[in-house]
């Protein structure tokens, strides 16, 4: 995705100062129109509170410490679940990409499990783990596992065989071949997997926290619904959007750092 973005972006017309701001024009315009619609009564506040009200309720929650605590809980669940599921997916991707035996042994099974929507497991997971932390971590890890597994496997399988032959001719050991040829070759594909996984990570966490949790952003939103605090509901949704964007930006930065050899990432 990001590769295509950066390739198709015309470099010549880039204006450095405005370029960073352009992407915020549309969100800001939407907020302005929204505020206007609320103030004039075009949209009743029962349906959608004004942005100023949302900011105000956010400020209150911030002062009470509730907001930070809930964000922290959600962030912690997301990261730990991502790390667990991501590392297992990466390990299986490596093993099945490098070893025919391992692929024969596990790939069919994994492909079968992949076709079960992991959110369908929520009832089962609640029965197993109750509504404590391990249930959420399990679901996030499961959701994150597949995109990382599939893209790591794909990346390793599609490394140019001519480069691998070259490495062997020049006497690289298996370890060197992996470190210098196979892994760097698979990295762009692994990053595609990571960015897919980040999306799934938030999605899973929202659903899990909405259905079965006693803390976290999803829980905060559900509780606000009970008390008809629609501004807090909207606030939670906006924070999810912001956190999602943050995670995506972080992976982009990492991509830029590690793929600096790639023509799409080279600065003029």
């Amino acid at each position: 995705m990001s590769l295509i973005d950066s390739i198709s972006r015309p470099r010549a017309v880039r204006l450095p100062r405005i370029d960073g701001l352009i992407q915020w024009i549309v969100p800001l315009a939407i907020i302005a129109i929204w505020q206007l619609a609320s103030v004039t009564g075009f949209v009743p506040t029962r349906v959608l509170p004004a942005p100023s009200d949302v900011v105000l309720s956010g400020w209150k929650l911030l002062l009470s410490g509730e907001l930070v605590r809930n964000i922290w809980v959600s962030f912690w669940r997301a990261s730990i679940g991502f790390l667990i599921g991501g590392s297992i997916g990466f390990a299986f991707g490596l093993a099945n990409g490098l070893s025919q035996l391992s692929a024969k042994l596990t790939d069919t099974t994994l492909q079968m499990v992949r076709n079960v929507p992991h959110l369908a497991l929520i009832p089962l997971v609640i029965l197993w783990f109750g509504i404590d932390e391990s249930a959420k971590l399990f679901l996030v890890a499961l959701g994150v596992f597949f995109p990382i597994y599939l893209n790591t496997l794909h990346g390793i399988r599609t490394v140019d065989p001519q480069l691998i032959e070259m490495g062997r001719i020049y006497g690289m050991t298996d370890g060197e071949l992996f470190r210098r040829v196979i892994f760097p070759g698979a990295l762009p594909s692994i990053f595609v997997g990571i960015r897919f996984a980040l999306g799934i990570m938030w999605l899973t966490l929202i659903v899990a926290e909405t259905i079965a949790a006693s803390s976290g952003l999803g829980y905060m939103a559900m509780q606000a619904r009970e008390f008809m605090l629609i501004d807090v509901v909207v606030l939670s949704i906006l924070i999810y959007a912001l956190l999602g964007k943050l995670a995506d930006s972080a992976s982009r930065v990492l991509e830029r750092l590690t793929l600096s050899w790639h023509p799409a990432f080279q600065k003029r």
Binding site: Q162, M166, Y170, M172, P184, G185, L259, W261, H262
Partner: peptide
């Protein structure tokens, strides 16, 4: 085909040729 490693700089690519 040159078969250079796209993720290694030119000098590092030449060093590959040193083998052991």
């Amino acid at each position: 085909e040159p078969r250079l490693l796209p993720w290694a700089r030119v000098l590092a690519n030449v060093e590959v040729g040193l083998g052991r």
